[in-house]
């Protein structure tokens, strides 16, 4: 998560309007779901990969790092899709049918491509920029504000948690399984109390700067470029064309 966030803040496309990136992703997702999976999903996947790695210059390792966990879930799900369990007749019968295999392949390819699109978005756009976009698209301000604060505080808590864990380790808190469980419990409890305390102080700090119920900040407003919007559409069209000309 920390690495993902760092790339989002430092990649080459960081200052490109999030709307342009979102349009590209929305187009790819629409193609991914509208066209036959086997034909379109690989094109969508590679389009997202190239945009991330070649376009925004995010290292490939970061891309695969984001993909790793969803890929594991997909792998775990494949048997359930491919195999069918038949309870009629002489007893439970587990069978592998060609239709089951095709279904499993289609579903996993489609999901993999969709996840790649989201990986592109999250690796090239900082979360607050995405939230600003969501607000402009009509998400309730209170919800956006909450997510904004949570995103900021997650990092504060994460820092505290890793410092506290190191302190516990230094006093051999993770020596055996038993002590690990105990230490982890203490860590969680401690973090909860500290977070409450921090919330109270954050409130004081905000009030000192005139907070009265609305977190307003002056965001950057990157230019929405017609040229880049057109390029995004063109890229999606190329993907669609590649999918359609395939036999």
């Amino acid at each position: 998560m920390l690495a993902t966030d760092r790339h989002a803040w430092t990649n080459r496309w960081r200052f490109i309007h999030p709307g342009e990136k979102a349009l590209f992703v929305a187009g790819l997702l629409a193609a991914d779901f509208a066209l036959p999976a086997l034909a379109v999903a690989p094109q969508v996947f590679w389009a997202a990969y190239l945009a991330t790695v070649t376009g925004a210059r995010v290292p490939g390792r970061a891309f695969w790092g984001v993909m790793a966990v969803p890929m594991l879930f997909l792998l775990a799900g494949i048997p359930a899709l491919a195999l069918s369990l038949n309870l009629d007749g002489a007893g439970p019968l587990l069978s592998l049918s060609p239709e089951g295999l095709a279904l499993a392949a289609a579903v996993s390819l489609r999901s993999l491509a969709a996840v790649a699109c989201l990986a592109f978005l999250i690796l090239t756009t900082p979360v607050p920029d995405l939230l600003a976009l969501a607000r402009r698209l009509g998400l309730p301000p209170a919800l956006v504000e909450l997510a904004y604060l949570m995103h900021r505080l997650v990092f504060v808590v994460l820092e505290r948690a890793s410092a506290a864990r190191q302190a516990q380790e230094a006093r051999l808190g993770y020596r055996t399984f038993g002590t690990s469980i105990r230490s982890l419990g203490l860590l969680g409890g401690g973090l909860f109390l500290r977070s409450l305390d921090r919330g109270r102080r954050l409130d004081l700090g905000l009030a000192a700067r005139g907070y009265h119920g609305e977190l307003r900040v002056l965001g950057r407003e990157p230019e929405l470029s017609v040229k880049r919007l057109a390029l995004a559409v063109l890229a999606v069209l190329v993907v669609v064309a590649l999918a359609l000309v395939q036999p």
Partner: peptide, 30 residues
């Protein structure tokens, strides 16, 4: 509060915004 500003000891108690410029804009906007 616009005449008397307060800087807390722990900066993480005061910084809430995503970028530096956004955080600094909070007070003047208020």
């Amino acid at each position: 509060r616009s005449r008397v500003g307060l800087v807390l000891q722990d900066p993480d108690d005061q910084l809430f915004a995503a970028t530096v410029a956004e955080d600094v804009s909070f007070g003047p906007l208020n």
